[in-house]
Protein backbone atom coordinates (compact mmCIF):
# COMPACT_ATOMS: atom_id res chain seq x y z
CA UNK A 1 0.00 0.00 0.00
CA UNK A 2 2.86 2.34 0.86
CA UNK A 3 4.52 1.58 -2.47
CA UNK A 4 1.31 2.43 -4.34
CA UNK A 5 1.01 5.68 -2.42
CA UNK A 6 4.63 6.50 -3.21
CA UNK A 7 4.02 5.84 -6.92
CA UNK A 8 0.96 8.11 -6.87
CA UNK A 9 2.96 10.82 -5.10
CA UNK A 10 5.72 10.60 -7.70
CA UNK A 11 3.08 10.75 -10.47
CA UNK A 12 1.62 13.91 -8.94
CA UNK A 13 5.09 15.48 -8.88
CA UNK A 14 5.73 14.45 -12.50
CA UNK A 15 2.37 15.95 -13.56
CA UNK A 16 3.30 19.14 -11.75
CA UNK A 17 6.70 19.26 -13.49
CA UNK A 18 5.03 18.60 -16.86
CA UNK A 19 2.50 21.41 -16.35
CA UNK A 20 5.27 23.74 -15.17
CA UNK A 21 7.34 22.97 -18.25
CA UNK A 22 4.33 23.52 -20.53
CA UNK A 23 3.57 26.83 -18.86
CA UNK A 24 7.15 28.03 -19.07
CA UNK A 25 7.23 27.08 -22.75
CA UNK A 26 4.35 29.46 -23.44
CA UNK A 27 5.67 32.24 -21.22
CA UNK A 28 5.11 34.65 -24.11
CA UNK A 29 1.50 34.76 -22.87
CA UNK A 30 2.78 36.67 -19.83
CA UNK A 31 0.43 36.92 -16.88
CA UNK A 32 -1.85 34.21 -18.30
CA UNK A 33 0.56 31.45 -17.27
CA UNK A 34 0.52 32.40 -13.57
CA UNK A 35 -2.47 30.23 -12.48
CA UNK A 36 -0.91 27.26 -14.29
CA UNK A 37 2.44 27.84 -12.60
CA UNK A 38 0.76 27.96 -9.18
CA UNK A 39 -1.21 24.81 -10.05
CA UNK A 40 2.04 23.05 -10.95
CA UNK A 41 3.68 24.30 -7.75
CA UNK A 42 0.75 23.02 -5.66
CA UNK A 43 0.97 19.58 -7.32
CA UNK A 44 4.71 19.34 -6.68
CA UNK A 45 4.16 20.44 -3.07
CA UNK A 46 1.39 17.87 -2.56
CA UNK A 47 3.54 15.10 -4.00
CA UNK A 48 6.49 16.10 -1.83
CA UNK A 49 4.24 16.31 1.24
CA UNK A 50 2.92 12.79 0.61
CA UNK A 51 6.43 11.41 0.11
CA UNK A 52 7.59 13.02 3.35
CA UNK A 53 4.65 11.34 5.16
CA UNK A 54 5.50 7.99 3.60
CA UNK A 55 9.13 8.33 4.67
CA UNK A 56 8.00 9.21 8.18
CA UNK A 57 5.78 6.11 8.32
CA UNK A 58 8.66 3.95 7.06
CA UNK A 59 11.01 5.37 9.66
CA UNK A 60 8.35 4.66 12.30
CA UNK A 61 7.99 1.05 11.15
CA UNK A 62 11.70 0.33 11.44
Amino acid sequence: MLALRAVLAVLIILCGIFILAEMLRSRGAGFAILPGVVLAGAMIALGAHRISLILRVRRGNR
Binding site: L39, A42, M43, A45, L46, H49, R50, L53
Partner: peptide
Protein backbone atom coordinates in the same frame (compact mmCIF):
# COMPACT_ATOMS: atom_id res chain seq x y z
CA UNK B 1 -2.93 17.37 2.14
CA UNK B 2 -6.54 18.63 2.20
CA UNK B 3 -5.55 22.25 1.53
CA UNK B 4 -3.32 21.33 -1.42
CA UNK B 5 -5.84 18.87 -2.89
CA UNK B 6 -8.66 21.42 -2.83
CA UNK B 7 -6.39 24.13 -4.25
CA UNK B 8 -5.24 21.85 -7.07
Amino acid sequence: ALILTILI
